[in-house]
């Protein structure tokens, strides 16, 4: 599983970073970036789905 942040859509709500800091980081402006090329380590799939389901801007997608 991989996660991807669409930088054009991200407005820095930081929901993904607070729910899944293992998968996302934020830059100095507060915009989200995926960690580890977006690869989701085993066991963190639920957190990845939570990040997607809580992004108000629909900026995060998952590919299996």
């Amino acid at each position: 599983m991989r996660v991807h942040v669409d930088a054009e859509k991200c407005q820095g709500h930081n929901r993904c970073y607070s729910l899944a800091p293992e998968l996302f980081d934020v830059d100095d402006l507060g915009n989200a970036v995926e960690l580890n090329d977006g690869n989701v380590p085993e066991g963190l799939e639920h957190k990845a789905r939570l990040a997607v389901a809580n992004c108000p801007e629909y900026a995060i997608t998952i590919s299996e």
């Binding site: 407005q11 820095g12 389901a53 992004c55 108000p56």
Partner: peptide, 19 residues
């Protein structure tokens, strides 16, 4: 658990102080 709420607005004017 699933909560895409818009309390801090949507788009380019997302509340600057939301954190």
């Amino acid at each position: 658990e699933e909560n895409r709420h818009a309390a801090f607005g949507l788009g380019i004017h997302r509340c600057l102080g939301s954190n």
